[in-house]
């Protein structure tokens, strides 16, 4: 079961998570420790990177209209900032006493804090990106809802003209997202639903066209054409609802089920 649910987050955090785990194990195995080297330059580099992240983070918050992002990101940034202070304190303590056990604990705590805070920040950012895709999916659902008012060929042309770019954008975004996920089951679910949407779209347009022609011709075939059209609309809508559901899943959801 992957720990990080996107390849981007995994690529950023896995190497540092590995290093922190090693340090924790070494600390537990050799409680008294060896003399620590001067870590002040390395800590200074971390602090500069933290300052830059905080600046970029608040710029992102200020430029976003996503209220959840505005709510979720500041605590993560504060966590990273606090953790960097722990690292500075640890480094100062170790310079005074390279064998200091409390300094080592502070170093571990600071490293874990950086890891946890950066992880929370990346998750908040990632969730915000997912919400952008969800909005596109919902706009497709809104277009599908107006299928029932399409009753002329002119309406159909306008409908197809409006629907096509939104569906294309949705499939492109969901396809990219699917490739980003580390969770194989979620990827397969998205692939399956996306494939269904791709296959059903021409069937839907054809169904609307048959309905329009039947309606103009009159007769008993109208009801069947309407039923077929509505059935296809329902199937496409169901697949998009499934895409929306899966996009919001993280690996943790399934762990909870287990």
């Amino acid at each position: 079961m992957p720990v990080f649910h996107t390849k981007t987050i995994e690529g950023i955090l896995e190497p540092v998570a590995l290093q922190v785990s090693k340090l924790v194990i070494l600390h537990e195995e050799a409680e008294d420790g060896n003399a620590m080297p001067d870590l002040s330059y390395a800590v200074h580099v971390v602090k500069n990177a933290v300052d830059n992240l905080v600046k970029v983070g608040y710029d992102t918050i200020n430029n976003s209209d996503d209220q959840l992002l505005k709510q979720d990101m500041p605590p993560a940034l504060q966590r990273v900032e606090e953790a960097s202070l722990y690292l500075i304190q640890a480094s100062d303590m170790l310079r005074a006493d390279p064998f200091s056990a409390p300094a080592r604990k502070k170093l571990i705590e600071g490293s874990r804090g950086i890891l946890g805070g950066t992880s929370a920040l990346l998750l908040a950012f990632d969730e915000s990106e997912v919400r952008k895709i969800l909005r596109i999916c919902k706009s497709v659902l809104e277009y599908l809802a107006i299928t029932e008012v399409v009753d002329s060929m002119d309406d159909l042309v306008t409908f197809v003209k409006n629907l096509s770019p939104v569906i294309t954008r949705m499939t492109k975004e969901v396809d990219s997202r699917e490739k980003e996920l580390t969770h194989q089951v979620h990827r397969e679910m998205l692939q399956r639903s996306l494939e269904q949407v791709k296959q059903l779209t021409p069937i839907l347009i054809s169904g609307i066209k048959i309905y329009v022609i039947s309606k103009q011709a009159g007769g008993p075939a109208v009801q069947d054409a309407q039923d077929n059209r509505d059935y296809t609309v329902q199937k496409v809508s169901n697949e998009i609802h499934e895409i929306i559901r899966v996009l919001q899943l993280t690996t943790y959801d399934e762990d909870e089920w287990d």
């Binding site: 981007t8 950023i12 955090l13 190497p15 540092v16 590995l18 290093q19 922190v20 090693k22 340090l23 070494l26 600390h27 195995e29 050799a30 420790g33 060896n34 003399a35 620590m36 080297p37 870590l39 390395a42 800590v43 580099v45 971390v46 500069n48 990177a49 933290v50 830059n52 992240l53 970029v56 983070g57 710029d59 992102t60 990273v80 690292l87 080592r104 170093l107 490293s111 950086i114 890891l115 950066t118 920040l121 990346l122 950012f125």
Partner: peptide
């Protein structure tokens, strides 16, 4: 995205810091 680049820099800097600390510890283990 700038935020991903900034996070990458922090992760790399933290990994380097922790690696230095681990190397010192490992000498004893």
């Amino acid at each position: 995205e700038q935020i991903l680049e900034a996070a990458k820099s922090i992760a790399a800097a933290t990994a380097a810091l922790v690696k230095s600390a681990s190397a010192a510890q490992r000498e004893l283990v």
